[in-house]
């Protein structure tokens, strides 16, 4: 019983949140890794692209809400998300047309793309703040929980409850659907295979008649879709604030690098590695231990490895460790 309680406690505060957060990071890292695989640079604007797509989704959500359109128990944002993806894709394609295409035609050094992406990040950040403002926005509606802690306790008779927020459930399910679709696309469709071929050997792809502009455009559209979905899910789960999305860059990059830049499977694994490490290291284990050891053995402190203020340090340290030990990532990427 005590053991079950400890497990319930861990599920509630570690497992469930980490699964949701990991899914969000995985989706974000997939976008970064796809852009890296095809265009060969780390896109610093990705966090702000997420913010842009989410912002459009929020605006449509508000519009739908004002017209009385709802999805019942599900958040209206799911209905608005396709519009977010549409606008975000258009925006990202416009940045490619206006910014990156020029450097592609000149075959510029990757670091030039990095700087250009910083410029795009600035502009995107400005646009998002200009339109929706720098503050927190809450746009979740519908049911709050799939399982409430109280219901769980009643159901199982345990003294610790496990609650699963609807947003967390939606996040994980959406992640599975999106990843399945993405892998189907990359492995089974003509366009997907041409993307992989281009990422593998650009010159040979050209010799095979693969149109580079098309591959690049598809990549940007996918990246925009992944960014919008990841951003919306994160916003539903927590809240939307432009600066937070900029800060998500670090864990997302860490996830992509840990998994091996350019490797989609690695990006997903990396997302979960980062999310679980971050939450496990910043969780205070005192109450879990209290269930497992006799009363007078329970330590005074919180038994928290690191304060949550330093959660970014976790991504950072994992990133450095991977760079030290396996610079290509856990799964081999196209990096280095």
């Amino acid at each position: 019983m005590e053991l079950l309680n400890a497990l319930a406690l861990l599920s509630n505060y570690v497992l469930v949140p980490a699964l949701a957060y990991g899914s969000q990071l995985a989706l974000g890292a997939l976008g970064v890794t796809l852009v890296f695989g095809i265009l060969r640079f780390s896109n610093f604007a990705h966090g702000d692209t997420m913010a842009f797509g989410t912002m459009v989704t929020i605006l449509f959500t508000w519009w739908f809400q004002s017209m009385g359109i709802h999805l019942g128990p599900l958040p209206t944002a799911l209905l608005a998300m396709p519009f977010g993806i549409l606008f975000c894709a258009a925006y990202v394609l416009a940045t490619d047309r206006l910014v990156y295409r020029f450097y592609r035609s000149k075959r510029s050094d990757p670091v030039i793309y990095l700087i250009a992406s910083v410029g795009v990040m600035f502009v995107t950040n400005g646009i998002v703040r200009f339109i929706i403002g720098p503050d927190d926005q809450n746009f979740a509606d519908g049911e709050r929980f799939i399982i409430k802690a109280g219901e769980f306790k009643k159901l199982t008779g345990l003294s610790e409850g496990v609650s699963i927020k609807l947003s967390q459930g939606i996040t994980v399910i959406t992640m599975f659907i999106v990843v399945a679709l993405l892998f189907w696309f990359l492995n089974k469709t003509r366009s997907g295979k041409s993307m992989r071929a281009y990422s593998d050997n650009e010159d040979l792809a050209l010799l095979s008649g693969i149109n580079p502009d098309r591959v690049v455009a598809i990549t940007w559209i996918l990246a925009a879709a992944l960014a919008t979905i990841a951003g919306t899910l994160y916003g539903l789960d927590k809240s939307f604030k432009p600066f937070t999305y900029f800060q998500l860059l670090l864990p997302i990059f860490a996830a992509a690098i840990v998994g091996g830049l350019g490797n989609p499977l690695g990006a997903i694994a990396g997302g979960f590695v980062i999310a679980f490490s971050e939450i496990m290291i910043t969780y205070a284990y005192k109450r879990v231990i209290a269930y497992l050891v006799p009363g007078d053995w329970v330590p005074d402190g919180l038994i928290q490895l690191l304060s949550t203020d330093y959660k970014f340090a976790v991504s950072f340290v994992i990133l450095l460790l991977v760079l030290l030990v396996r610079p290509n990532g856990i799964f081999k990427g196209t990096g280095v």
Binding site: S42, P110, L114, L250, L261, D309, F312, F316, L323, L324
Partner: peptide
């Protein structure tokens, strides 16, 4: 020491990380 010699991207991301951490330390 850790990131030089690898891709330029890695140095960029690592410096982004260290600066966030330094400021987090100052704040906390």
């Amino acid at each position: 020491k850790i990131t030089l010699g690898l891709r330029a991207d890695y140095l960029a991301i690592a410096t982004l990380g260290i600066s966030e951490i330094i400021v987090a330390m100052l704040k906390n």
